[in-house]
């Protein structure tokens, strides 16, 4: 796995005087599935949001396929089209049908023909078991269905990587599985994934690598079996003993 997709160098982010990220350097390779775990307020979500510039880093650099995207010259919208993001709170567009949610960006920003965009959206919906909801408005969907919709909305742009920000934290327990299944299918299909999660079993199962982020730095970066069975950093061990 030498094919790098995203690389960060000394990434920091401060909100006023509060320093949330204190220098994060890591590389995500093509096809890699990376889970980020760690205590609340440790900077996991902020780090993830920096990766598609929803948060502007205070200092440090981010590279996408070797190109610096933290540079001022980069078209941020163009970059974001290549990185999908799924939010804890779904953020589906309530004023559009399920199908329109998916076809909107491809039609507007990639100039895909409407029929083609719709055909692809239907195929994606079928893949996540929502084909029968295509013409519904999101208010008729359950939380799990909304989250699956938000995943295919991102996939419709054919991203190079997908970012997941606690995708199951806002779901009722019985809906967690249907969403995790979609993500793990995606992982198996070779998609590059960075996922902030509290689902330790899931992280262990699907990840190639797990990052433990706490106090704004990567405390540990290891394979899931290493991190879950013999964590080297005492902070990781303490955290895992509390959540497992």
């Amino acid at each position: 796995m030498t094919n790098e997709i995203i690389r960060t160098e000394g990434l920091t982010k401060s909100f006023g005087k509060l320093e949330v990220l204190k220098g994060i350097s890591t590389t995500i390779h093509k096809g890699e599935v990376v889970s980020i775990i760690g205590p609340s307020g440790g900077g996991k979500s902020t780090f993830l949001r920096c990766l598609n510039l929803l948060e502007e880093p205070t200092s440090g650099k981010i590279f996408f396929k070797g190109q610096e995207i933290t540079s001022k010259k980069i078209d941020i919208c163009e970059y974001r089209r290549q990185i999908g993001m799924v939010f804890q709170t779904f953020n589906v567009f309530p004023h559009m049908t399920v199908l329109e949610n998916i076809t909107l960006a491809p039609i507007l920003e990639k100039k895909v023909k409407k029929e083609d965009a719709e055909a692809e959206a239907m195929a994606l919906l079928k893949r996540v078991g929502l084909a029968d909801k295509a013409s519904e408005y999101p208010r008729k969907l359950s939380g799990g269905q909304k989250q699956r919709l938000s995943i295919v909305r991102a996939l419709a742009m054919h991203p190079e990587a997908m970012l997941f920000d606690e995708p199951t934290s806002a779901l009722d327990p019985e809906m967690v599985k249907e969403v995790l299944n979609v993500i793990s299918d995606l992982a198996k299909s070779g998609m590059t994934i960075v996922c902030v999660t509290h689902e330790m079993g899931f992280a262990r199962e699907i990840s190639d690598r797990v990052l433990f982020i706490s106090d704004g730095i990567i405390k540990e970066d290891a394979s899931p079996s290493e991190i879950f069975t013999s964590p080297r950093d005492p902070a990781t061990a303490r955290f895992l003993s509390m959540v497992l």
């Binding site: 598609n52 919208c77 970059y79 974001r80 589906v92 909107l104 960006a105 909305r153 991102a154």
Partner: peptide, 27 residues
């Protein structure tokens, strides 16, 4: 309008104009 709508619209790569005209203003 919920801040999540802005973020979702930006995350799928909509231009600033489209974020406003297609997502934010209709809501």
């Amino acid at each position: 309008v919920d801040v999540g709508q802005w973020e979702a619209a930006r995350s799928i790569g909509l231009s600033n104009t489209h974020v406003m005209t297609k997502i934010i203003l209709p809501q």
